[in-house]
């Protein structure tokens, strides 16, 4: 019998706790597959965030460290600098990375830490129940922006991939999404390139994933995917933002 599909060895058997239609589980799977395909599962340390993915360390099948809110890039720095032979990645949401951990992500990129950051941008705080994120779109409703995000009061959403790409230490930044199979394949390719560049010692690598949050957006999963493409992708353009990594392997 030919095996045509099986669950990646990069994930444990623990059932995921994510809501229906959430992007986290898909991105977990892509990371697991990439680590498995690159033969890195025995030499990887994953740094997990605070937020919806706080249990990620129980899902990835590699050594993991749970960081304080926003500090994953600093924790990753501590691991990578003392274990330069290991593959080190952080997995962070928008509150974690673009709000409370802004200093840590900017300076990890500035130093050109040879780590990979997977940034899940769903434009909302998931775990705490739908509060405004730094990436919440103008006009988008949140439990702390009941009338929609008002730039006069809350400013404009932050484009992290573009901002970090101004730093020399960042060699690769791409924004992807996981709303359909072609885009999912593209996302996997981006994640793979990020890990390959890290292992080639090129510098800091960053993949921003636009990810649906039907629960806190108050939408059906398919509607959420549609909204993501219409509104999020319009403000956060998909594609390679920066790639100075050159050829690997």
């Amino acid at each position: 019998m030919t095996v045509i599909y099986q669950k990646t060895k990069g994930l444990q058997d623990t059932p995921l706790h994510y809501c229906p239609g959430c992007g986290h589980g898909i991105v977990h799977k892509l990371i697991g597959e990439v680590l498995e395909e690159l033969g890195l599962l025995d030499t990887t340390v994953g740094i997990c965030p605070v937020g919806c993915a706080v249990f990620a360390g129980s899902y990835f099948s590699c050594d993991c460290i749970e960081a304080a809110h926003g500090r994953a890039p600093a924790v990753a720095t501590g691991v990578k600098r003392t274990h330069p032979d290991q593959c080190v990645f952080t997995y962070q949401g928008d509150g974690d990375l673009a709000s409370i951990g802004t200093a840590e992500i900017v300076h990890a990129a500035m130093r050109g830490e040879k780590i990979t950051t997977i940034f899940i941008n769903n434009a909302i705080y998931g775990m705490t129940g739908g509060q405004m994120a730094p990436t919440t779109l103008v006009g988008q409703r949140a439990t702390t922006a009941p009338l929609g995000r008002d730039p006069a009061q809350a400013g404009w959403p932050i484009r992290m991939a573009e901002m970090l790409s101004t730093l020399e230490g960042l060699v690769y930044a791409e924004r992807v999404c996981v709303v359909d199979i072609p885009r999912l394949n593209k996302a996997k390719k981006a994640i793979k390139r990020a890990f390959e560049l890290q292992m080639a010692g090129k510098g800091f690598t960053f993949v921003e994933v636009l990810s649906p949050c039907p629960t806190n957006w108050g939408m059906e999963p398919l509607e959420a995917n549609q909204w993501l493409m219409e509104h999020m992708a319009a403000y956060y353009p998909l594609g390679v933002v920066k790639d100075t990594g050159g050829v690997t392997g």
Binding site: I65, A67, T77, G78, R81, T82, A103, E104
Partner: peptide, 23 residues
């Protein structure tokens, strides 16, 4: 390894990472 961190907050979390990896 010496790293000058961007803040004391980052520094202690780098310590956390290094300690968590056994150093």
């Amino acid at each position: 390894v010496f790293v000058q961190a961007e803040s004391e907050l980052a520094a202690i979390n780098m310590v956390y990472g290094a300690a968590a990896s056994g150093v």
